[in-house]
Design a protein around this nucleic acid. Structure first.
Lengths: 339, 339
DNA sequence: ATGAAAGCGCTAACAA
DNA sequence: TTGTTAGCGCTTTCAT
């Protein structure tokens, strides 16, 4: 069943059928109805490949992330997919891992598949080495590239980012001001673009409190973010080494889960003896006792904006290259509350 | 840049170029090298749409799930995507929600997009009403349909399932045998196919212990699985109503998080006063104190098997219609350990 | 408003 | 082993 069959049965030419298919206005209402009813009768659906060949688009967007099972990315992928569908677009999902070459290869793969645009989820796609970001601007010469939480300058590249530096600065400032002492430890496990911005925020907060930002207790946990027991161990080792802290700020809620486990193992009361703060405001904040203070990064609205922006760009409209959202501190039981 | 350009520059016909593209053995090594080098030079990649039109396939698989941000589904989608890619296939992700019509519509949409196969993630795709499962068998007349944790009979439908009934029976039996009394409460929040099998397992365990399976304390939490505070409230209300329990078995780890919150709010010591068991063995098991006893459902191996099976089917091989995996009890701190 | 016909870039049957 | 050629099912230009 193809366009010829329909045209015969409807007593028109294939051109007319095609026009109906593409909602052209240059078809009389009468013939349009006739053609539509024949299509209905036959249960006809146009061949997507042939259509793609003619239109040079199959209305699909490539969505890349390092690992879509990570809570943040999982949410992002979900929101993006939903929003794309509302515009009639589908998404091809690619989990690239963290290696530069894989990222680049997947990008090329998606171009080969002739997607209409590419979305990079997470700041892991931005490197400090400019040459490792070139694949993004190069890709953008073919299709619009959208970055969620990453920033790179280039034609046809659009960035939707959280103001991680300011958000982390706010979070750290809060902790430094609450409770006794300023033994703040910052724990992170991603060396990404946003990871670096977060660290800047921490240092800024320290500086403003008259502390030496270079002496800030900033530690990198080199392991899988879901490996809660190892995170706890890591903190234990730091403490064994004589590093003092009574406040832990984490780059991610799951790291904070490790911090809570550490507190439990060491029988440190939270928040009296140890304050803990996460980042992301994921479902994990409710999975612990007391509940976790965290920073809400407005993920859903960011994803919707990202997709809206992309679709406007595909429509040829002008759009801002960067759109920044601010994080919001969600105070809960793992931190002391302001008197 | 197309196949004609390449053929001209390489001094061969387009048929030969096409053969090289498709790894045909009917090309001399010399011309193959010549053609390949020209392709390389020109940075040529074949047009995927034209290729799809000719081959009637673009090597894409449709992956449907209700909400890819739910931890179980997020993991499944990730494993499936990775395994598909290792075979050179890509996946189009669709989040359908729970409504029957949406599921059916997405299925049709994927067929329209001419995917080579469809994977349904989660038992939510199976209804008790046979007419609501018909879209699956109908779809299977066009492309192979794979079910992860759902079971339906039909040509070209392949099911990879956890033995939820036996697994839940094992879990419930364990709880009934440990500690004082048999006040076991079963909490679930999905009325899906596997949800029903789990309940059967609970009843069976009760029966074998000489209890009336119809009197079993089986409760449905009608809410979002991530809404931990509401789950805790729900348990509180049950207890207010005079329903006694000192053991809670949950259909899902996130429900168990709610149970732990409840215990915390009521100051019930876990596991001494209240034993809690989850299902799924997700990262959440490490996010609480004590750590959560749960049932490991072998998600990764199931997903790999699913994709392997699909690819063999696409190759025309014969494959079993059902493959069943057993769950494994992972004992941790929220349950009493066997003496 | 409608139709004829020339692509789009590839595959594959058939011929050589 | 290689080339010729007829599709695949659609879009779109150019007539009418």
């Amino acid at each position: 069943m193809n366009i010829y069959d329909i045209s015969k049965r409807a007593g028109v030419s294939i051109a007319t059928v095609s026009r109906v298919l593409n909602n052209s206005s240059r078809v009389s209402e009468k013939t349009r109805q006739k053609v539509l009813s024949v299509m209905e009768e036959c249960g006809y659906t146009p061949n997507a490949f042939a259509r793609g060949l003619g239109l040079n688009s199959m209305k699909t967007i490539g969505v890349m992330c390092s690992d879509s099972s990570y809570p943040y990315q999982a949410k992002a992928v979900y929101f993006i997919q939903q929003q794309l569908r509302s515009y009639g677009y589908d998404c091809i999902l690619c989990c690239t891992g963290d290696e530069y070459l894989h990222k680049k290869e997947y990008c090329d793969l998606l171009l080969t598949k002739k997607v209409d645009g590419i979305i990079l989820v997470g700041s892991g796609y931005i490197s400090q080495k400019p040459e490792e970001n070139r694949f993004i601007t190069e890709t953008a010469q073919k299709v619009p590239v959208m970055l969620l939480n990453g920033h790179v300058e280039g034609d046809n590249v659009y960035c939707i980012v959280t103001d991680d530096e300011r958000s982390m600065e706010k979070a750290a400032t809060y902790l430094l001001e609450e409770g006794e002492g300023q033994e703040l430890l910052y724990l992170y496990n991603a060396l990404s673009d946003s990871g670096r911005r977060k660290i800047q925020g921490i240092k800024k907060a320290c500086e403003k409190k008259g502390m030496d930002p270079e002496a800030a207790r900033i530690y990198y946990f080199d392991g899988y973010h879901e490996d809660i027991p190892r995170i706890a161990d890591f903190l234990h080792q730091l403490s064994e080494k004589g590093i003092n802290f009574n406040k832990i700020l984490c780059s991610d809620d799951s790291l904070a889960m490790g911090a809570l486990r550490y507190a439990y193992q060491e029988k440190l009361q939270v928040p009296e003896k140890l304050q803990i703060m996460g980042y992301g405001n994921s479902m994990l904040v409710h999975c612990c006792n007391p509940q976790l203070t965290s920073v809400d990064t407005k993920e859903e609205i960011m994803c919707r904006t990202l997709v809206d922006t992309l679709l406007h760009v595909l429509d040829g409209e002008e759009k801002p290259a960067i759109q920044v959202y601010s994080g919001e501190l969600m105070l809960r039981g793992t931190t002391l509350s302001r008197k």
